[in-house]
């Protein structure tokens, strides 16, 4: 499958909306294997190797949920992608086989000495998704563990241990929205998955844009022109899934990130038109929040040129 066919284009209407556009996923999946699997999993592992502290963090209380996540994701991969993965149980010992990477993981459930990494850190090395565990505690919903290789301008270390509603940069425009999302999350039923798409823009075709290296990649934002936008600017879509872990009652949050260079996006008339109108109607405060304000005129200029070339009415 080509990456363009599987790109989860996020816009459904001709104007900008900021809502909890979550929908239930049946069957309840937490991960997806795309055509870039091998390449992206290798990149993830390289990042984990080089910057483990930046890409993996956990609090001790998350361990039960980590084990639950490990079992869930390995089971899911073997159930829905049997040609690529298998998962077998012999007594208390489990064997997960990754045929795409020709690897085998053997472990005893809930026995920490049987694995080399923490459970979340281990299972995350077999999926393209970033994986976050949020603990549903008596005093709130807290980020308690995460394997985060492909963040869009945020720091796992900074948000570790934070309450869900304070994790996002405080922006008045989204405060009410965040409060509602939190309420929505606390009502997610066990074994149920919800999916939403969240979009932003990345300058350069780079999945790993953590806040920690902002001074390297962030300056590219000043270099966007009407001429280079097609190559430099990428629509970044995060397919975010929320799953209620039934045993611990905690939340698994998975993020699968897709990038599409604008040159490929504008080849689809419908996508071009929708993307253009959404960027154009994006409120100033949110354009700032998404970091688009810096190059919004250049971006719109590029898109208008494409619309004209393809003879599409604005």
């Amino acid at each position: 499958m080509s990456s363009k066919v599987e790109f989860p284009f996020p816009f459904t209407s001709d104007h900008y909306e900021y809502t909890n556009n979550s929908s239930p996923l049946i069957p309840a999946r937490t991960v997806t294997v795309s055509s870039n699997y091998v390449e992206e999993v290798r990149l993830k592992r390289k990042l984990l190797e080089e910057n483990h502290e930046r890409c993996y963090r956990s609090l001790p209380i998350s361990l039960e949920s980590q084990w639950e996540t490990l079992l869930l994701v390995f089971r899911e991969l073997a159930t829905y992608e049997p040609e690529h993965f298998s998962f077998k149980r012999r007594g208390n010992t489990y064997v997960f086989t990754n045929h795409l990477l020709q690897e085998e993981e053997t472990f005893v459930y809930r026995d920490h000495s049987s694995i080399d990494f923490e459970p979340l850190d281990l299972v995350g090395r077999h999926v393209q998704e970033d994986l976050i565990v949020m603990g549903d505690r008596h005093d709130g919903l807290f980020l308690e563990a995460g394997q985060l290789c492909f963040p869009s301008n945020w720091s796992l270390t900074f948000v570790l241990g934070m309450e869900f509603k304070t994790i996002h940069t405080p922006v008045p425009a989204i405060a009410e929205f965040i409060e509602k999302v939190e309420r929505f999350i606390t009502r997610i039923r066990p074994n149920t998955a919800w999916e939403r798409k969240n979009w932003s823009i990345t300058i350069s075709h780079k999945l790993d844009t953590p806040l920690e290296t902002y001074s390297d990649w962030g300056k590219l934002r000043y270099h966007v022109t009407k001429e280079n936008a097609g190559e430099l600017v990428n629509l970044r879509v995060e397919v975010q899934r929320l799953f209620r872990l039934p045993v611990t009652n905690d939340i698994l949050f998975s993020i699968h990130t897709y990038l599409l260079p604008l040159n490929e996006l504008v080849a689809n008339d419908d996508w071009l038109k929708k993307f253009y109108t959404n960027v154009k109607t994006l409120p100033q405060e949110l354009a700032d929040y998404k970091g688009i304000s810096l190059y919004k005129p250049e971006l719109l200029g590029f898109l208008e040129k494409a619309l004209k070339r393809r003879k599409i009415e604005r």
């Binding site: 909890n20 979550s22 929908s23 239930p24």
Partner: peptide, 12 residues
């Protein structure tokens, strides 16, 4: 009107 779950859960 936005909608998603149609089950009175998501608030859309």
């Amino acid at each position: 009107v936005s909608y998603a779950c149609r089950m009175g859960i998501c608030g859309s």
